[in-house]
């Protein structure tokens, strides 16, 4: 390993440490609290799950979420339907911030669907913030199920 490589390696290590240090500065369970189960999931069409889940305060898409959205994109394109992506947050944030967070999540999904060839004019978004939980319990499981986007057919 050359000197530069060692320096770069050290830099990466330090940056990595900083990122994880920041992540624990806020809510503890910030990185890996995605819901991965199927309990609340419904279907947009046969074999096309209607929702994806998010980590606390995040709007990034999990690999599993992308696979769900690929199916949604294929279905939307083949059927020609328009959809509404609803963005939701759990109850552990302030109401107004959660409205913005729900909007950010719904748009992350919309952007991904568009990246898969869905026309933007076929996808609208709406945020419900923390107003429409799917699971009314106050538990980590319920919160992870409530941090979601749900794709529904436009009326």
């Amino acid at each position: 390993m050359s000197l530069t490589n060692i320096r770069n390696f050290a830099l990466v290590a330090v940056l990595g440490f900083l990122v994880s240090a920041c992540a624990t500065g806020g809510k503890k369970r910030s990185a890996n609290d995605w819901y991965t189960g199927t309990d609340t999931v419904k279907f947009l069409a046969a074999g096309v799950p209607d929702r994806v889940f998010f980590a606390t305060n995040k709007s990034g898409l999990h690999t599993a979420s992308k696979s769900t959205l690929n199916k949604q994109a294929a279905y939307i394109k083949s059927s020609g339907i328009s959809v509404v992506v609803e963005g939701h947050a759990d109850e552990r944030g302030t109401r107004e911030y959660n409205l913005a967070l729900g909007e950010r999540r719904a748009n992350a999904v919309r952007d991904y669907l568009m990246s898969q060839g869905v026309s933007g004019s076929n996808v609208t978004v709406i945020s419900y913030g923390k107003e429409r939980p799917v699971n009314p319990e106050s538990s980590r499981l319920a919160w992870s199920q409530n941090r979601r986007s749900v794709t529904v057919k436009a009326k």
Binding site: S59, E96, L99, A100, E103, R104, A106, N107, A108, D111, S127
Partner: peptide
């Protein structure tokens, strides 16, 4: 606040 394209 006004939210557009995921940004408020």
């Amino acid at each position: 606040s006004f939210a557009r394209d995921g940004n408020s």
